[in-house]
Structures are given as C-alpha cells and as structure tokens.
Design a protein around this nucleic acid. Structure first.
Lengths: 243, 243
DNA sequence: AGGTCTAATTTGTTATAACTAATGTGTCAG
DNA sequence: CTGACACATTAGTTATAACAAATTAGACCT
C-alpha cells in the first residue's frame, strides 16, 4: 500500500539489473511469464513495466521472440545522447581525454553564474574519434554533489565514458528536465587549439542546463564540436491507413 | 480481421476528430466508458488508444477528472517542432512570407540530388517573428506528392503556417522517420540578404530528410536560422524513489 | 546433413472484472 | 449563502483469461 504502483517497482528493478550488467546489452531477457512469476505480479503489470523500458529505448521486443537489451544509454534526446554510443555504432573508437578537473569559484562564465552561486567543479574533457579530437566538453557541477570526484572516475577509453552515466552511477546525480541551446560561433583561440582547427572557424556549441525534480539546477554542460550534429527522428503520431 | 488492431482504429478516429475540430483545444473528451460504448470496444482498448494520444502530446489526462485536448501540434521532436508554436508560446507574432514555389528539375543541391531523381517542387519561405526575419526554409518535395500546390496553400499569418501540417492535411503527405543534421556555416550572399545579416556571419543550418514507412524519401527540408536553437528536454528514465 | 513441416513458445491484442484514488457534485446544516 | 460532508463519477492499477500472430525449436523425412 506504499502508493508506488507495482509496475513501477518492477520497472525500477529491471532497470537496475540492466545498469548493473545483470542483463547485458544484446542479452535476451526472461520471458514475460518468467518475470511475472519472479516478481509475483500479473502479466499485465510486467508488460507495463517492460513497455516503459521499450519506449525509453533500453529494450526492444519482437513478437514470438522476446525482449532484448538494446542499449544502456538510449537516445532520449538530441544532445544528451551518448557520444560513445554514436561513435561505436559507426564502428569507430571513441576516446575521452580528461583535460582538467578543478574546484573553482568566482570567475565563472556568465551562462554558468546565472544558475549557480556556490563552489563548483569544472570538468573539461576532449572527446576523440579514432584518436582525433572531435568535441570539447566543459561540465560545471556543484562540488557538494560530487564529493571526492577525481580523475580516476573518468576512463579514457571503453564503453563507459558518458559523463552523465558517471555522474548518475557514482554520485547518484539525477536530473529530470533540461534546457538546451544550440548555437554557432567562431572558435576562440583556446578552443580552436584543443580541437586542432584554425582560429575563427565557425563551430557548433551546445549549452545544456539540467534541473532536478524540484527545479534546482544540477549541472551545466558546455560543448564545442567540430563538424555537424546528426540524428534520427521518429515520425509524428503514427496513423495506419489500412493496407 | 483486417490486421489493424482496434486500438489503432480508435486512435485514428479520435485523432481525426481532434484535427477536424470536433474535439477542440481545451475541450473535455467523452469518458473512457462513453468512448468504449461508442466504439464498441473494451475499456482496455480505449485506454490504449488514449494513452498513445496522451504520450504524443495531444491530450492530457487527470485521474477523477477526464481527458482534455491539449494541442493539435504537439512537440514531437526537436527540430521539426512547429516554429509557429514556439513563437506563439513566447507571446510573439509568427509570420511566413512565401518567397517562391517552383517546379524545378536538374540543378539541385547535392544534398537534395542524393535522395531524389524526379521532378521536384521547391518551396522557399521566410519565417518572421514580429515582422523581422528569423529563418529561411527551403523545402524540396516530389511534384507527384503535391499536385496542384500553389501559393494559396501557404498562409502568411495565423496559426496554421507549419509546412508539415499543410503537407499532411492538404496533400496527405506523411512521413514515419527522418534524419536531421545540424551544422554551422557562414551565410552565403543570397541567404544573408534574406535574413538581413552581414555576409559571412556564422549561422545555423538544419537539413532534414523525411522518409515514409517503406523507406522512400518524402521531402527534404533545408533551414537557415538567425540565432540559436533552444528547446527543453524531458529527463532520463523516470525512477521513482519511494517518498 | 539439410530441408520441411509441425508443435511449442512468446509477445500482441482484447475482454471482463474488481478495486483504488483523485475529482466533481450535490445535499444539508449553520 | 457558505462550508463541510457524503456520494457519484472518472481515470489508474491489477488480475485473469482467451485468442492471434510471429518466432523458435524439434521431429521427421529425404
């Protein structure tokens, strides 16, 4: 009688198993029947939980076959999509070089100062594809949210370079909404240097501010990228016109 | 036995009533029970149809109260979001000046020629906010899909300027997936002239190719905009931590 | 061994039913 | 007329059941 619906409990439990690796990417999940036995709920309830995960992109389902783990970083939005995933999908090798990770105060860019008034940590990373620089990311986050954060938390290679996943799993930093701005500017000298492009080349920037469920800002992410942003879209409201 | 699920039929029927104005924005829908009687299906089926519409953003629902019509142009994606809607939300006045609408062949930009090899119509429009130019859009679409298209189909003002809605409602042009690329470039003379900005100013461009359910390209949309793109994001997979 | 058909498995759809919780409504007392 | 309370309405959750449709697995035959 806790007020939390059973399907939500099941959803969270399965999501936990996904993130813990118990259900790894590519694996086939237990059947609906098995899961409903395991959790001692009806098939309706299990289906509702699974449907949420399918809709969110974690799972895929095929009639007659079953559920498969699709990804741990579903593409839930344009920008916050995992750089690692996109590069891996293209069959190339993603990398992440940590440039700096410092506690800072004062002297903040105006976009950051607008949201935060406390001690922040700045994490600056250079994302690479097959070794060549592709994207410069700067993440500001209140120090109190990430106590003891250090370079070891950021792997330079491998499947788990997403800062969002690191923040979430290591520090339980979650966000429920975000505001993003994509703009176009000419590369400042320091940015151009790190991306290895000429100064004053036009590049894309993405600024993203994430908020928790109470509306408090959680982190600010600034991103400079060489080359375009590409992504796929699902269509509008599906309308089946009878075959 | 047509193979089309009942909930899909109900969904399409309700969507039709929404778009026809039978269920107007702000109105309260009939109750689930009423609808299940009307369509002679179970409440499960009606709920599934309604859930799709809620999820797509057309409707909202409140326990104990009912379903309400939220909007006819839900924000189903980042880029293809209605310019009109975004401007109206900010309390300003959107406009759309039709610059040209021509049948063309040959001499296509390479991005367009890559997808189409038939006679196309080019629709070029200048979107304005409070009268000042904000965005230049070029839409290429096969002529066979929009027979008899003419300037009268494009209102210069009002609530229904979205080319996507025009294509859909007037010509039944639907798409089920799309690929979008956002890039940064310096304004060419003709573009700069129309947007009333200096030549070689860095601006954002969006290229969008939409496909139907068979994978055939439906239209190509090119967009040059002054100023940044901003949008809000929903959070990642919701995880209720028991209160 | 390889291909084909059949049967079992598994998700998708739909109906019925009961209960919960939020909302709206109407009655009655003051 | 107003506020409080009880009742009806309505969406949300959950279980059970049956069948459809797609896939998989196994038996069988060549």
């Amino acid at each position: 009688m806790s007020g939390i619906p059973k399907y939500q409990v099941v959803h969270d439990e399965i999501l936990g198993r996904l993130e813990s690796g118990q259900y790894a990417v590519g694996m086939r999940l237990p059947t609906e029947k098995d899961l409903s036995n395991t959790f001692d709920v009806s098939r309706v309830t299990v289906r509702k939980a699974l449907e949420l995960l399918v809709r969110a992109g974690f799972l895929t389902s095929r009639r007659g076959s079953g559920y498969n783990v699709a990804t741990l970083s579903p593409l839930f939005s344009t920008c916050l999509v995992s750089f690692t995933d996109k590069v891996l999908i293209e069959g190339r090798v993603p990398g992440a070089k940590l440039l700096r990770i410092d506690k800072i105060a004062g002297k903040l860019p105006p976009e950051v100062a607008e949201f935060f008034d406390e001690q922040l940590v700045l994490i600056e990373r250079l994302r690479t594809v097959d070794g060549s620089p592709r994207m410069l990311t700067q993440t500001w986050i209140p120090h109190r949210l990430v106590p003891g954060i250090k370079a070891e938390h950021f792997p330079q290679s491998g499947q788990n370079q997403s800062i969002l996943r690191i923040l979430r799993h290591v520090f339980q930093v979650d966000w429920s909404s975000a505001c993003e701005t994509i703009d176009c500017l000419v590369a400042a000298p320091d940015v151009a240097d790190r991306l290895e492009i000429p100064v004053n080349t036009p590049i894309l920037s993405q600024a993203c501010t994430a908020f928790d469920s109470t509306g408090e800002p959680v982190f600010f992410d600034m991103l400079f990228r060489k080359g375009p942003i590409s992504f796929d879209l699902a269509g509008p409201a599906p309308r089946q016109t009878g075959t």
